[in-house]
Amino acid sequence: MEPDETDKALLGRISARDSGALRILYTRHNVRLYRFLVRLTGNEALAEECVNETFLKVWLKAESFGGQSSVSTWLFTIARNEALSHLRKRREAPLDEEQAAQIEDESDTQDVTAAKKDKCAVMRLCIDKLSPAHREIIDLVYYQDLSVAEVAEVVGIPENTVKTRMFHARKQLSEHFRRHGIDRGWP
């Protein structure tokens, strides 16, 4: 095994039914995908299931990778579609409609007073309160380090919409911070 074997080379080996290559690809990407999916679905068990479904699809359809994007972007796209498919089956809110960006989770899930002591905990509360579409884009940009073009590809929206959606997600985040007693001076 080449130590610095690229993800694309691994896909080539996976196409030839090399399960060792899939193991390596899994090792490289499973944690990031899982965390993205937990953010997206709010459900750890479902996130875990979707990670497996993603790699199963990679195993079955590695040869369908077009090569026009990075392998990780491709994996995020598959994982997102898996999650949306599961959520639809569970009759939860569709994420691919713009209106979904406006619907927020208003329920209190944790002790807000205690969380005020810790800005990171407040961040958790605020992210949890964002709409699924806003939660998703915050994670893709700030944690997964995707570019505008990569987010556009994963989410399936134009690049300009990526920028405005991120802007509005950030504003909603600041609004939630304010409601939790932290005024960030914006918007």
Binding site: N30, Y34, R35, E48, Y142, Y143
Partner: peptide, 11 residues
């Protein structure tokens, strides 16, 4: 966001 995501665990 990064600090929060790091606490989300893994499969």
């Amino acid at each position: 966001t990064f600090a929060d995501a790091e606490a989300l665990g893994q499969p």
